[in-house]
Design a protein around this nucleic acid. Structure first.
Lengths: 178, 178
DNA sequence: CGTGAAACAGACCGACC
DNA sequence: GGTCGGTCTGTTTCACG
């Protein structure tokens, strides 16, 4: 496997307009996922490419939407949102109207930082960030007031063992460390 | 409640060195959580503060670790990691040695982007990003080969309804929209 | 906190090999 | 893809009110 130095993107036969990511792109993206403040100069040095070629690649990946955005990541604890909660939800009904209502509800709560429909088409996993259990309860009350839910159960995060925004690029074509 | 315009940080009586975040800081952080590429100039204009004062606040919050880092956020789909999975795990044993082993294992897998110990002290929620179900199975096999686990169940994400890195600052002192 | 300014770094974008 | 060099924008740090 090690003679394959390029990365194979899934769906490239289905999506012909999807562009290939090569090894150099992976190196650049790996750096930018770690530190988005890197100057093109510093970046080009780390990935072993000229300033200009590096800049062109970054711009291209930004245009294509591969690099979606650059943001500041805050310390949740220091920002007063030290309590993270997973909320497991079962839909009260199955129709499009309910889903629309649910979408609008969760979109309106900044405390809810993630909402995922999971396999089964009935279950949802939510993630919220609040200051404490009292704040969670207020969120819960406001949520169920806006949308009908069957079976809501919360799991409070005691410890964040790992948490990263980095999409795993090194594990695409081959096995990763493990 | 609406007469309280300042933000109350939890634990400020426990952590006397923790600094207060005022309304202006919240405005700045809100902007930077949305767009980390904002120049100090553009930022100061949006939050209604002078260039220099704005710059001083940003630097201070960076020093204090409130602004943990600035990173590039990639499009997972375009990066070939379109499948997101929640993995629910029960620990096989309860001792410190197992936990150490578990920590090291998950740290070594870039596909595993989140690991949370949840209330009960026995349950863990993991989140992984992989290219497809086959890649998930490979990850699963490698994971259970490294660490003993009881009850592993996976939930595949069919749809990401909401996903943000923004810590909810506006919902700290008062109720948020909802 | 605000202004202004100066010195420097970095982004951006040609032209060319 | 690499190099050169220009312009312009943005950062960083002054001094001063």
């Amino acid at each position: 496997m090690s003679h394959l130095s390029f990365i194979v993107i899934k769906n490239w036969d289905i999506c012909p307009d999807m562009h290939q990511i090569d090894d150099m792109d992976v190196r650049i993206l790996t750096q930018l996922q770690r530190d988005g403040t890197l100057s093109v100069d510093a970046l080009s040095e780390r990935v072993n490419l000229s300033r200009n070629a590096c800049w062109r690649r970054v711009k291209l990946m930004e245009e294509r939407g591969l690099i979606r955005d650059r943001v500041a990541i805050l310390d949740a604890e220091a920002a007063g949102c030290g309590l993270s909660v997973f909320i497991f939800v079962r839909a009260a009904s199955h129709d499009a109207d309910w889903l629309r209502q649910f979408r609008e509800a969760v979109a309106g709560f900044p405390e809810i930082v993630g909402v995922y429909r999971t396999s089964g088409d009935l279950d949802y996993v939510l993630r919220a960030r609040v200051s404490d259990v009292k704040a969670y309860d207020r969120l819960y009350q406001r949520l169920i007031a806006k949308v009908k839910l069957a079976d809501v159960s919360a799991s409070f995060v005691m410890e964040e063992i790992k948490e990263t925004t980095q999409i795993p690029l090194s594990a695409l074509g081959r096995g990763s460390s493990g």
